[in-house]
Write a protein that binds this DNA or RNA. Structure first.
Lengths: 218, 218
DNA sequence: AGACTGTCAGACCATTTGGTCCAACCAGAA
DNA sequence: TTCTGGTTGGACCAAATGGTCTGACAGTCT
């Protein structure tokens, strides 16, 4: 379980206890929502896993959907952090290498968050659509400019920045969402440091260097 | 309706009609399961969308889980087809280019299947785990040998075949599962032929040629 | 024609679900 | 102590859900 909020303890421990309770509920909710979706997870099960009564859960979060949104909100920020770090001052090689590593770390440390995010997307992101169209879109547009700058400068081969970003998202996310499949085939998880490094290294090598020995000029 | 194949079936029109009904149910089930998962989709909703009564649905599929498995089974074969096509006789360039195209086509033409597959993976693939460990694993192992052959032959730069396959899976799958996100950002879908071609082309270019202009060292 | 069999739907049931109500608890202010 | 307002849980409810039962209708076989 990996809580996403840095809870700074407040004045009296009494109020902090309830905040801790809220967080326990959110953690349990993340665990179950990420497994069964909004409709598939029951409040009973969440309350049970959090070790509180259902009434108590509904005291803190007035409805199931409110709880779901609260959990999702907590995820979103963490999720977009890596792409914000992309900066024109870096070399494309360093920036992309770093981005890949951070993203694979996310897939390792926040599997459930990754999955819940994926679930929400699959369902058409009814609760995030707005933010996708505004915040995320603007962010991607901004970083696309950076990438295009690199290309114009000749330090990156011509590529559509959008598709590059999708490729990076898809690849790294895959290691969290399809962990079962990967474990079935490779017998390893990102929790294994060696496998983690191999993952980062291989993605970096393919994306930056490509697979073909000599770059075919066209 | 006149049956096109007057084979020696017991009752040609009747059997065909019921099979069509079964398929309509499976289609509706795929549509709803892929959106809400096994637990999130109700039999009522599925029957309703298929245009049959719930009783009729349960007549053809004795339980919800049986229906789910039946749908999943139909998907699996289609899903593994592209990787089967990878062949040592082809050049790696041709093979990988072809694989990427086929896989993006799958993401375009079978969005719901892709999503249901993804959902199942996220939940830990309780119903597919066996086949992942046996069939899929063997298949991947076999194709990894082919890739390693290419590398030994010097027609492919050294890379872990597993991670290459994961990258291809993740990237292509992403266009189906995260279509909402992609549409929010790029404003296009794979249904748009231009966007489809751009997708295929960019993935091919990145994977085969890499991003960096010229490797200064090897 | 009549019996048989496969196909289909409406009524029904037990369980689970999200959510409400009310009574009780418990720390601190008076 | 008593009062008070935030906090907590057991009992409860209406709706939805997966699944069963009974019976009807339509072809087919004798």
């Amino acid at each position: 379980m990996t809580p996403l909020t840095p809870s700074a303890a407040v004045s009296p421990g009494r109020a902090a206890a309830s905040e801790a309770r809220k967080q326990r509920i959110r953690d349990a909710a993340l665990s179950l929502f990420s497994q069964f979706g909004l409709r598939g997870a029951s409040l009973d099960a969440i309350a049970n896993q959090a070790g509180v009564s259902k009434t108590n859960l509904l005291y803190y979060f007035p409805s199931k959907e409110k709880l779901y949104i609260s959990v999702l909100q907590q995820i979103l920020n963490t999720w977009l952090e890596p792409i914000r770090a992309i900066d024109a001052d870096q070399s494309p090689e360093a920036a992309i290498n770093h981005y890949i590593r951070i993203k694979v770390e996310l897939s390792r440390d926040h599997v459930q968050a990754s999955r819940l995010f994926c679930l929400e997307m699959i369902q058409g992101a009814p609760l995030l659509k707005e933010e996708l169209h505004s915040d995320l879109r603007a962010l991607v547009e901004e970083k696309s400019k950076v990438i295009e700058g690199w290309i114009a400068h000749g330090s990156l081969l011509p590529v559509d920045p959008h598709h590059l970003i999708y490729l990076l998202w898809g690849t790294t996310q895959h290691y969290a969402d399809f962990a079962v499949q990967i474990e079935a085939i490779s017998g390893k998880t990102l929790a294994d440091p060696e496998f983690f490094e191999a993952t980062v290294d291989n993605i970096q090598r393919i994306v930056l260097g490509g697979l073909l020995p000599r770059p075919k000029e066209s």
